[in-house]
Amino acid sequence: MAAAAAAGAGPEMVRGQVFDVGPRYTNLSYIGEGAYGMVCSAYDNVNKVRVAIKKISPFEHQTYCQRTLREIKILLRFRHENIIGINDIIRAPTIEQMKDVYIVQDLMETDLYKLLKTQHLSNDHICYFLYQILRGLKYIHSANVLHRDLKPSNLLLNTTCDLKICDFGLARVADPDHDHTGFLTEYVATRWYRAPEIMLNSKGYTKSIDIWSVGCILAEMLSNRPIFPGKHYLDQLNHILGILGSPSQEDLNCIINLKARNYLLSLPHKNKVPWNRLFPNADSKALDLLDKMLTFNPHKRIEVEQALAHPYLEQYYDPSDEPIAEAPFKFDMELDDLPKEKLKELIFEETARFQPGYRS
């Protein structure tokens, strides 16, 4: 834990890192770190609560700039109880001085990944967590956004079992017609939660990839272990087919990539493993919904509104309290091709509203 900075004593240090967030945020305490930044909790002297502050230093890398800009653009436009918001952003007053960006968010005690390492969940908890994931996802999908990296560590939890989806750095506007060349190379989302079509096709992607990830998360809540822990690309596919069985001819016809289709045709026939054999203690309604989410063919996979209306979630289902976005989200430009200098300018502009004396 960093010592509390005395008023006016300059930035606090946390594990050798400068955290320049005073005077409003003090009493910093280390939480963890990701690929390009550290997260601390801090005391907000204005709202009198502890908050989470993520320090991001992305400006050396085009990919990190892209992810940072995506996350900020999306989260500043989203407003939903099951999606983490941005409360404040701290950065230098000029673009030349801006080396880091500090993002202030609600402090959540833990995440689903940490929880599943230590606790076996009751059916009631599984049901409530799944409902909140789908409630947040309904809003995301209504904005025409794909999260693309749903996994237990991106689901934040607090002691009252509130759940918030975080990390929109890989999110995209849904565009089933656009052929994202190089899709697989830039697709760094965790393999275990990846839909089979991501490994088999490169053309376009749809909201059904997020539903697949939610199915993987439900299976993990039922058993405290990942359902498809593939060691590499082909191993991942083999794990999936080992449980779902061989795809039907109709399902194979959806695979545009001939090499991928021929690979699947070359494999020995596998039978589907019954879900109640894998999860003998699970609620039968939970397994019915799991089956509809972990469907090989993305066109037959359940959609988020149908999933919310499934009998497993009937005690929570309330369409009048499951809000959607006001308007579909649009990125003005494809960020993939922009140089990091341009992305830095866009991050600077996007964060201006939090600067003292800002006038829109």
Rank of each mutant, 00 (worst) to 15 (best):
L156Y: 06
F279V: 11
D179C: 10
I255G: 06
I86P: 09
K300F: 09
D162N: 14
L184N: 09
P196G: 08
S208M: 11
N262A: 08
S122R: 13
I90Y: 01
D149Q: 03
N271T: 10
R225C: 10
F228A: 01
L170N: 02
S122D: 01
G22L: 06
Y316F: 15
R91F: 07
L343S: 11
N238G: 09
G85P: 07
A35H: 08
G215L: 07
A309G: 08
I56K: 12
G215I: 06
L134K: 06
P328S: 11
E109S: 06
C127L: 09
T181F: 05
R191C: 05
M333Y: 10
R191N: 08
L115H: 01
A92T: 13
G215D: 06
D88R: 01
L121M: 14
G136F: 06
K164M: 07
K342H: 08
K270F: 10
L163D: 01
A6Q: 09
Q315G: 04
N253K: 12
S41T: 14
L346I: 09
A35E: 04
K342M: 06
A2G: 10
S57T: 13
P152Q: 05
F354L: 11
N281R: 05
E334F: 01
H178S: 11
L252Y: 05
R353T: 05
K138M: 07
A92E: 05
G230Y: 02
R24K: 05
A309P: 08
Y193K: 09
L155P: 06
F183A: 01
L294Y: 05
E12Y: 02
F329M: 11
C40Q: 14
Y30P: 05
Y131N: 15
L112W: 00
I74M: 02
L155K: 04
N238P: 09
E305R: 08
Y139Q: 09
H239I: 10
P23S: 09
I209G: 08
Y43P: 11
G230A: 01
I95Q: 12
I133F: 14
L107Q: 14
K117D: 07
N271K: 11
E12D: 15
P280A: 06
I74T: 12
K300C: 13
Y131M: 01
L294P: 06
A286I: 03
A282R: 08
K164E: 05
F296C: 03
V49F: 13
K272E: 00
A7R: 10
D100W: 12
L267D: 00
P11H: 15
N123H: 05
N144F: 06
L222W: 03
P58Q: 15
I90G: 02
V49C: 12
E341K: 12
G32W: 00
P274R: 12
Q119W: 09
L244Q: 13
S57G: 15
S248D: 09
W192R: 15
I103C: 06
L338N: 09
L234D: 09
I103V: 00
L130F: 00
L184E: 10
L294D: 03
Q66Y: 12
I84K: 04
E345L: 07
M333P: 09
N158K: 15
T63E: 13
V14C: 09
D235C: 09
S284G: 07
R135W: 01
R225F: 07
F354Q: 07
Y187A: 00
K151W: 09
N154F: 04
V304S: 09
L157E: 03
S153I: 11
V51T: 09
G230C: 14
R24W: 01
D318N: 14
A219N: 06
N271Q: 02
G10K: 10
K54C: 00
F296E: 00
T94G: 06
I126Q: 04
S153G: 01
R15G: 12
K231I: 07
D336E: 14
M221F: 11
A143I: 02
D210V: 14
M98N: 02
Y263F: 15
D20I: 10
L290Y: 09
R79T: 08
V214I: 08
K340P: 06
K55T: 08
N253P: 06
N257D: 08
R91V: 11
Y233M: 10
H141V: 11
M38H: 09
K285E: 12
I89V: 13
L69F: 01
H239Y: 11
Y358R: 11
D175A: 15
G22T: 02
E345A: 09
A9T: 12
F19E: 07
Y102P: 00
K285G: 10
L184W: 12
S142L: 11
Y358P: 08
E305C: 07
A352L: 06
D149W: 08
S360R: 10
K231C: 05
P323W: 03
L218W: 09
G136R: 09
H80D: 02
I90Q: 07
R261L: 15
L28P: 05
S248M: 08
L244D: 01
I165Q: 05
I126L: 11
P328A: 11
G37Q: 04
L237M: 11
S153C: 13
D111A: 14
W212V: 05
D162G: 00
H147I: 03
D235A: 10
F331N: 12
C161A: 08
R191P: 07
K138V: 07
K203R: 12
D177N: 11
R194G: 08
I165W: 06
L75H: 15
V21T: 13
L338R: 00
K285D: 08
Q105W: 15
N281E: 08
D332K: 05
I240G: 06
C127R: 09
P311C: 01
F168L: 15
L146G: 03
S153H: 01
E305Y: 05
F279I: 15
Q315C: 01
A3G: 00
H125N: 13
A52W: 00
D235Y: 14
D88V: 12
E71T: 09
I227R: 03
A42R: 02
K48T: 13
A325F: 01
R359K: 13
P152N: 02
E350A: 04
A52V: 14
G22Q: 08
E71Y: 00
L157D: 12
L170C: 03
Y102N: 14
S360I: 11
L163V: 07
L163Y: 03
A195K: 04
V304E: 11
I302T: 00
V145R: 03
S41H: 07
S208H: 04
V18I: 10
V101N: 07
Y358T: 12
I198P: 01
D332L: 05
E326D: 15
K114F: 05
I56N: 15
N224C: 05
V51M: 14
L252S: 09
V39H: 03
S284M: 10
D318T: 02
N253Y: 13
K99N: 15
S213V: 07
E96P: 06
E12S: 05
E349D: 14
F183K: 03
K99Y: 04
A35P: 06
L313V: 05
Y263W: 04
S122G: 00
L69S: 11
V273L: 12
L308C: 06
Y30I: 02
V104A: 00
L241F: 10
Q132A: 08
V304T: 03
Y43R: 06
G204R: 14
Q249D: 10
W192N: 12
H141S: 12
P339A: 08
T26P: 13
D111M: 01
D283E: 15
S208P: 00
D318C: 08
G242N: 08
K99H: 06
S266D: 08
E60V: 14
N144W: 02
I133S: 10
N47D: 14
G215V: 14
E186I: 02
F331M: 00
R135I: 02
C127Q: 02
N262H: 09
A3C: 09
H299A: 04
H125W: 02
C65A: 14
T63R: 14
M108Q: 00
L170I: 11
G357S: 11
A92C: 04
H299W: 06
C65Y: 15
V101P: 06
K285M: 05
H232D: 05
D251Q: 05
S284Q: 09
C166L: 06
G357Y: 03
Y102W: 07
V14N: 06
Q119P: 10
A309F: 05
N253G: 07
N154D: 00
P196N: 06
F348Q: 12
E314Q: 08
D167P: 03
S142K: 07
T110G: 05
K342C: 04
S122C: 12
E314C: 04
E334G: 01
P11M: 14
Q249L: 13
H299T: 11
M333I: 15
Q306D: 04
K340D: 05
I243V: 08
G32K: 00
L222P: 07
T160K: 11
E109G: 01
K342L: 05
E250P: 03
